[in-house]
Every structure is written in structure tokens, then in C-alpha cells.
Simulated assay, not measured.
Amino acid sequence: MASQLARPQPTSELSESALDESQTGPKPPTPVRRWLREPLLHFLFAGALIFAIYQLLNPTANRTDRTNQIALTKDDLRQLAVQWLAQGRPLPTADQMHALIEQRVSEEILSREAVALGLDKDDEIIKRRLAQKMDFLAADIATLQDPGEAELRAWYTQNSGRFALPPRASFRHLYFSFDRPGARDRAAGILDKISGKPADTPEVATVADPFMFQDYYAERAPDQIAKEFGPGFAKAVFQLKPGAWQGPIQSGYGWHLVFVDAIEPDRVPLFEEVEPDVKSAWLDQKQSEIKRIAYEAMRARYTVVVPPIESVDFGSLRNPQAPIASTGVLPQ
């Protein structure tokens, strides 16, 4: 009896049990497995991966519009004033401060644009140098242009006044020093003696005082004469008639009797005489135009924020060694 109870169940009973389990189906998946199989999760993961790779390859792509804002603080304006005073100048006027601010903004814009172009790579140089590189780029673009002769001639016709040659005088002089009494009277007395004599008469040179520079000047322009003798002397020389001793004319050294050999009036040279200078001036103008247009386009992308100049206290920055501007000084 006992042996019969210990026997395993018949095969038919096992098959019925398996049949019952197949009808009920497999056990349901866990919540974690269900999420791992979700297509939306796969999409989000792929998107995050793509975004991470993009950010890695484009580290500056997430910049906001705030990077295009140049905000100067009151401390910045005070620093500009300090730099101004460090040069031994009085307090800057309002117009001068505006110019300093514009210069600072210009440097900041050009340096940012230079960095955006990658000009700062492997280059440990200050912002001003970066701004200069941007300036050089515009100059290089201009130098790539090669104007033809017809274009240069047309440009020269419109700008010929820039190449006008000043009048020139060739003259010799006799010098009477301030160090000796009655210099002007001595010059006037000598003029009576040498009047009507040629400029190269040997005895003429012995009647005056030794001069530290030249006795004869050939083809000198007014600014060249003014640089050596003073503007009043230069103006008087060009009012003299050639071919006779005249004077006395005062300079910064003393009194002079002057014999003008010739005066060449001012004139506009022919294009062929100044063609290389015309091309150089044309390139300079093109460079200026390209720089201006490029800078205006770059500046338009920036918002400049500057506190009112009147709200900054510059009083404590006064340089006691420098005079105070009488008009237009910033509020203190």
C-alpha cells in the first residue's frame, strides 16, 4: 500500500499540468524591463547623445545674445580716466571721455571678432594686438586690389588737390644776431650799402654775423622754412620780389637781409609725375573704407551699455600736478 502511494504521478497527469501552465501564459515582465523596451526612451537617449557630441565639437554654440553685449561699469570709466591722468593731463572733458569710451568699445569689439575668427589661437597677446590683427586683415583685403591706370587717372582727377605742390623759394640771407646790440639797426645800415649788388658779391658775406646753419637755401617750401626760421619769416620770404637784397626780416635767431633768387608758385603736378603716390593714396583710401564698413557691420551686432558719465565721481582722481580744464570738465 505504502509503495503505491510513493510512486510518481502518471505521465498523463504531468501533461495536463503543463497544458494548464501554457494556457495561463508566461509571467509578465518587470517595470524596469518594460521601460528598457520603450521606443521613446531609445529616442531620448539617442537625442541626448547627439546633443552631447555636438556640444563637444562646438563648445561656443550655446552662447546667448548676452555675449554680444558690451557693458562698461562706473569702475571701467574711472579706469579710463586714471589712464588719461597718468599721462600728466587734466581731468578729461565730456567729449574726451566719449572718445575714450568709443576707443575702449572699438578695441573690445575688434578683439572679440578676432577671437571668433580664431586669431587668438597659439598667440599670447593682448586685446589690442588682436584688434590690430583685425585691422591688418582689412588692409590686406585692400592690397589685393590692383587698380588700372584709367581708374587711377579718374580718381586723381577728383583728388588732385591732395597732390598739389606748395610754392618753393631759393634764397640766401645775411644774419644779424640778437646777442649784439642794435641788430636791426645794423641790418638796416648794411642794406643801404649792399643794395643793388649781386648776391654772390664777395664783400657781402663779411658784413654779417656768422650763422650756425646754412647761408643759402634752395627750393624750400613754406613749412620747411618755417620749421627752421619760424612762420613769420617764411611768410615774409614769399612776399619778396626776386633779384634784390631786402629786409630786415626777423626770425627766432635775429634779423636777416634776404636775397631771393627765385620763387616757384604752387601747382598741381601731372598724373605721370606722381603716379606711384596716387596709387599709394588710392590704396590707403580703400583700406580706410574697408575698415570702416567692416567695423560698422561688426558693431551693429553688439549692444553697448555705458553708465551716464555724469553719474561717475571723478573728483578723487584729480592730478594735483596737472591744470584743470576751464570748460567742459566733468562734474566732480
Rank of each mutant, 00 (worst) to 15 (best):
R299G: 02
I293E: 13
A221T: 15
P39I: 06
S177F: 01
Q321V: 01
K286L: 14
K291T: 00
P29F: 09
V304E: 07
A236T: 15
E219C: 00
Q332R: 15
G182T: 10
V274W: 12
I194F: 00
G254M: 04
L257E: 04
R89T: 03
D75M: 03
V274N: 09
E149G: 09
R34A: 12
Q96H: 02
M298I: 02
I109A: 02
M298R: 13
G254K: 10
R220A: 14
F51D: 06
R7M: 10
V204N: 05
R168E: 09
V105D: 03
F45R: 14
E21N: 02
P210M: 14
Q250T: 06
P8W: 09
D185T: 14
P39Y: 02
P166K: 12
N68F: 04
T64W: 02
L137I: 15
I125E: 15
A48I: 10
S195M: 07
A139L: 01
Q4I: 13
Q332G: 09
G118L: 06
P167I: 02
P222H: 12
A205K: 05
L49N: 03
R180T: 11
A221M: 14
A81K: 00
M1W: 07
L36V: 08
G315C: 09
A94D: 07
Q87K: 01
A199P: 10
G328E: 15
Q287W: 07
Q250M: 13
D75A: 10
N159T: 13
A262C: 00
K127H: 09
P202S: 10
E38R: 12
S111W: 02
I70F: 08
E264C: 03
K279G: 15
K193L: 08
K227E: 15
A71N: 12
F176A: 14
H42E: 03
A142F: 07
S288P: 01
L44E: 12
R184M: 15
P210Y: 04
M134G: 05
S251C: 08
A300Q: 06
